[in-house]
Design a protein around this nucleic acid. Structure first.
Length: 642
RNA sequence: GCCACUUUAGCUCAGAUGGUAGAGCAACGCACUUGUAAUGCGUGGGUCAUCCGUUCAAUUCGGAUAAGUGGCUCCA
């Protein structure tokens, strides 16, 4: 007998060699029925994994954990591969993992899958599910494993990379066998509802140097209704997409004659952006930042000096040759700001010096990756460079993090995470070559984060070429993972530009540079803000804050009187004086996400009142004009979010 | 940049296996003077993204270009 500790802390004595599934059955039949995998001593195992010694066990179901879902989805990915193999026997299989939302499988096939192909594959998958084929695990020594997979070159490549001497595990379901570490369900019939979502090209092993394979994304659930719900969720995400809302609310537009990745801000969007610019600059000024203006282009030599030329030129617009000069549109502002620092001699007493700019940058983004305001080719950065003494790094960095947190609080953002972006040591040509500098910068950043108790995760290969970064990552409505704020530690540019300050000892010393962008770029920040608010901006950012809706022409005079009163307080207000029914005017104001509507009829004019309606709570009843003015003014001044 | 798909009125979308197109909303006009998410009637509006082919004839078929969408690569 062995001792099993379950997740709830309860203990159980069972026979040695019992399967996880039988253990679940001994607890409850229902639990066993919904079981997708087991977590044994922290490792995900199959349902039929045999428990040989005392262990901590958690029964995973589709509903109680991501690991449970992944076991379910991973099994479905094998069903997909089996279906594809049945329909297209010449296809070579690559990999088919579960992801956070479903799974995919990559196939090497000469002609990409058509819509009809995908329908056929989905039908075949349902057939395999119906056949309820038992899924068996077995393992082989490397040589035999390669022999078994000799017709699958991608699998052979994977096997060859597995550690020497280890048994290689396979899963077999009827006529289909796949190299796989598991875990899996016990049979294909356990999967109930499946839906192919999309297909696309994807490079083998994620490298553009390799062949492009065909990837199919799909999802599966224990119930058909869950598939339907998931599809509704996807549809709702599309309605939150900043590109759709940006068009509906006339925030920005694009035009083929202007070009890809070059959005134009319409009056509403421009207003929101101007308010964001003022908001952040005011905050920065309070924190001792000095703002500058520098040109959007520069001599190539500037980027040769900074070192960007060798690492970044592929992402820049091509050189413009003038008489004796070679000019480029700038992709970042750091070099300009380095020269501003260098413009005069600095004392250790002056530091930190904080140079800020709302600066336009130009990056030649791949045509396939531009996206609304999220990825553009001309952007405006909320950029700043902090020139600090080494002993000030920690404090100054913490101030930046505080600023980030306070801004996010003002906007009510909650779904973001800090990422410590490090160099990839395997890929050194992407980064400035100075191991000592990297080790020092990375460990210093990690120390700061740890000592301030900021939760973060680490990501290799995400650093800037000159140093590691702290990035704030968010997920967009359609699921892109993007950086919204960034703070970077840089020992390189001060060296390249030979920056100095005179220390207490009278000798020159080298400052350290912190690059930071709080709102990142105004473009992407606005995209994020649109998606977070679904276009219902907080009142201080709303293009129209109050819309006055007279019921008939008889209230027009009263309406314009109130309009003037509100305008005196700087409130953005419009009167809808069209000859339409009140329901129509309300519907329109509501769709334009106007925070407050004032309905004015006979009753209001007589009593000198306004009927107030909020976009969020609906009819608030009648209010004195002064009372309403005070309410709105307070909400605007306090950056209130609803 | 790569793979696939898409592009028809200001917007959202129908449409014909080749004989130059339609709806709803919006716009404009008229009537109605209206009480918390769409009043009724009428009018105008399209080189069917652009260019080049095939054809008696192309918005429809083929090719190229541009822009967009979903991914991959890349990235604020």
């Amino acid at each position: 007998m062995i001792n099993i500790t379950l997740k709830d802390g309860s203990k159980k004595q069972v026979e040695k060699g019992i399967s996880a599934l039988d253990l679940a059955k001994s607890i409850s039949e229902g639990l066993a029925r919904n079981m997708t995998a087991a977590l044994v001593n922290g490792k995900v195992k199959d349902l039929r994994y045999k428990l040989e010694e005392d262990s901590e066990v958690e029964i995973l179901t589709f509903d109680n954990s991501l690991d449970g879902k992944k076991a379910y989805w991973h099994t479905t990915s094998h069903i997909m591969a089996q279906a594809v193999k049945r329909l297209f026997p010449d296809v070579k299989l690559a990999i088919g993992p579960a992801i956070d939302n479903g799974f995919y499988y990559d196939f090497d096939i000469d002609t990409p899958f058509s819509e009809e192909d995908k329908q056929k594959i989905e039908d075949e998958m349902r057939k395999i599910i119906k056949e309820n084929i038992s899924i068996e695990r077995f393992s082989l020594p490397r040589k035999e494993a390669i022999e078994l997979m000799k017709d699958e070159p991608y699998k052979v490549e994977l096997i060859e990379e597995l550690p020497e001497g280890e048994e290689i595990s396979f899963y077999k379901q009827g006529d289909f066998t796949d190299l796989c570490a598991g875990p899996h369900l016990e049979s294909t019939g356990k999967v109930k509802a499946v839906k192919i979502l999309s297909s696309s090209g994807a490079y083998w092993r994620g490298s553009e140097k390799n062949k492009m394979l065909q990837r199919i994304y799909a999802i599966s659930f224990p119930k058909q209704s869950q598939v339907d719900e998931y599809l509704v969720e996807l549809e709702e995400a599309k309605n939150r997409d900043h590109r759709k809302i940006g068009k509906d609310l006339e925030l920005f537009m694009t035009h083929p004659l202007v070009g890809s990745g070059l959005p134009m801000y319409l009056p509403n969007g421009a207003l929101v952006r101007r308010l964001l610019e003022r908001y952040i600059q005011d905050k920065e000024i309070k924190m001792g930042y000095k703002h500058v203006y520098t040109p959007s282009m520069a001599n190539v030599a500037l980027y040769k000096t900074s070192g960007h030329w060798d690492h970044y030129k592929e992402d820049m617009f091509p050189v413009m040759k003038m008489d004796n000069e070679e000019l480029v549109l700038r992709p970042m502002n750091c070099p300009h700001h380095m020269l501003i620092y260098k413009n005069k001699m600095h004392s250790y007493r002056e530091l930190p010096i904080r140079i800020g700019e709302l600066a336009h940058d130009f990056r030649f983004e791949d045509s396939g990756s531009v996206c609304g305001l999220e990825r553009v080719r001309e952007m405006c950065q909320n950029d700043a460079h902090l020139f600090v003494r080494p002993d000030q790094i920690k404090e100054e960095f913490a101030k930046v993090v505080d600023l980030i947190l306070s801004v996010y609080k003002d906007f009510g953002f909650k779904d973001y995470s800090f990422r410590l972006s490090l160099r990839d040591k395997e890929n050194k040509e992407k980064y400035f070559d100075d191991d000592d500098m990297w080790e020092m910068a990375e460990s210093q950043l990690r120390d700061i984060l740890t000592s301030y108790g900021i939760p973060f995760y680490e990501a290799k290969g995400e650093a800037a070429f000159y140093g590691p970064k702290l990035d704030v990552q968010i997920k967009t409505a359609v699921g892109h993972d993007v950086t919204i704020s960034t703070c970077q530690l840089d020992f390189l540019l001060p060296q390249r530009f030979e920056l100095e300050y005179i220390g207490e000892d009278g000798a020159p010393h080298r400052p350290v540079v912190i690059h930071r962008a709080i709102l990142g770029t105004f473009d992407r920040f606005l995209a994020f803000l649109i998606e977070e608010t679904k276009g219902a901006f907080p009142i201080w950012l709303s293009p129209v804050q109050v819309k006055i809706l007279p019921i008939t022409d008889n209230q027009l005079e009263y309406a314009s009187k109130i309009k003037e009163e509100l305008e005196e307080l700087g409130i953005r207000v419009e009167v809808d004086d069209r000859n339409e029914k009140i329901g129509y005017k309300i519907r329109e104001a509501q769709m334009q996400k106007v925070p407050y509507m004032l309905v004015l009829g006979e009753k209001e004019v007589t009593a000198n009142l306004a009927s107030v309606r909020s976009r969020k709570a609906g009819d608030l009843g009648q209010m004195k004009i002064d009372e309403f003015k005070k309410k709105v003014k307070t909400e605007i001044d306090n950056f209130e979010i609803d």
